[in-house]
């Protein structure tokens, strides 16, 4: 554009700063409610936790600066390593099963069989219930002497106190809780796939299995990424269910990292070490999420409108 540049440049240059400042202010004003939330409840606590992780603080006496001591101490602490390992096993038990079952449920619901609407609502019920309450109810069900599960089996199994069964039992309850949530997202993803693709595949002679594998699943990748990323993060942070069902026992077999952090902070009152553990968990989750994102970005070659 070269039309009268000299004449236009001057007023434009004069007007721009005022207008843009006003725009910025208006923009900020609109953003303010969210910024306060993000800043006050997300960013500020992160900064505070980082700060606390460099101190020694028992909540009662003033904090003392100790630099990186807490990080050195937790990285050399076998109990912290073990709780990370327990968490990893837990995530590996929960994620594949809950994703597969969620997908299966979504595919079934997508058939629009009679009663689907009701079933969909029932499936999500556990997810909208308070995890702590669910944990308490499941502890009753798992009770070795009078629990409903052993009554049904007619056999005494010590689900929550046997070292081999405790973690799988907690994982099973977590999977049961999350399946509805996962299914809901897959259902939304399925609804976004135009039916023509499936028809075209069928005309080309694809059976139901091939249609699922070669058409539906690739098109569901963005959903799968979301479900996996949020699922991994939430299972890494699982706490309520463990707290209510086993309290980390027996012998630390269900002591996931969030529980260790809780114990360190509110039982042993070593806030600094607990904060340092949280920072390590935070970094670990960021790494895992970035890895997942990289993997899916390479494989998702088209965007769905």
């Amino acid at each position: 554009m070269t039309v009268a540049p000299a004449r236009r440049a001057v007023p434009a240059a004069r007007a721009r700063p005022g207008r843009s400042r006003r725009d910025t202010l208006t923009g900020l004003a609109f953003l303010a409610p969210s910024l306060v939330g993000v800043g006050g409840f997300l960013l500020a606590p992160v900064v505070v936790v980082l700060g606390i992780s460099l101190t020694r603080w028992d909540l009662i006496d003033p904090a003392r600066w100790t630099g990186l001591d807490n990080y050195r101490s937790i990285l050399g602490d076998p109990a912290f390593g073990r709780s990370l390992a327990v968490t990893a096993v837990f995530v590996l038990l929960v994620i594949p099963l809950q994703t597969a079952l969620g997908l299966a449920a979504a595919l079934l619901l997508d058939q629009r069989l009679p009663g689907s609407t009701w079933f969909r609502a029932i499936l999500v019920l556990p997810w909208i219930s308070a995890p702590l309450a669910l944990g308490v109810v499941w502890r009753w069900l798992f009770d070795p002497s009078d629990g409903a599960i052993n009554e049904l089996l007619g056999h005494r199994i010590e689900w929550l106190t046997s070292p081999a069964l405790a973690l799988p039992s907690v994982a099973a309850v977590t999977i049961w809780t999350n399946v509805g949530y996962v299914a809901l997202f897959f259902l939304a993803g399925l609804a976004g796939i135009p039916p023509q693709y499936g028809e075209a595949a069928r005309i080309d002679g694809a059976g139901p299995w091939q249609g699922l594998r070669r058409v539906t699943l690739p098109l569901l990748r963005p959903t799968t990424f979301f479900v996996l990323a949020t699922g991994v993060i939430s299972s890494f942070q699982v706490f309520d269910t463990v707290y209510a069902m086993t309290g980390g026992g027996p012998a630390g077999r269900t002591e996931v990292v969030a529980y260790t952090i809780y114990r360190e902070a509110f039982v042993n009152f070593r806030m600094g070490r607990a904060a340092a553990m949280s920072v390590v968990l935070f970094l670990l989750l960021i790494t895992v999420t970035i890895a997942q994102q990289t993997y899916f970005r390479r494989r998702t070659t088209y965007e769905m409108g």
């Binding site: 009770d143 070795p144 002497s145 010590e158 929550l160 106190t161 046997s162 309290g247």
Partner: peptide
């Protein structure tokens, strides 16, 4: 006496 599996956490 009742098993500790029953009484430990309850």
């Amino acid at each position: 006496a009742p098993s500790a599996a029953d009484t430990n956490t309850n």
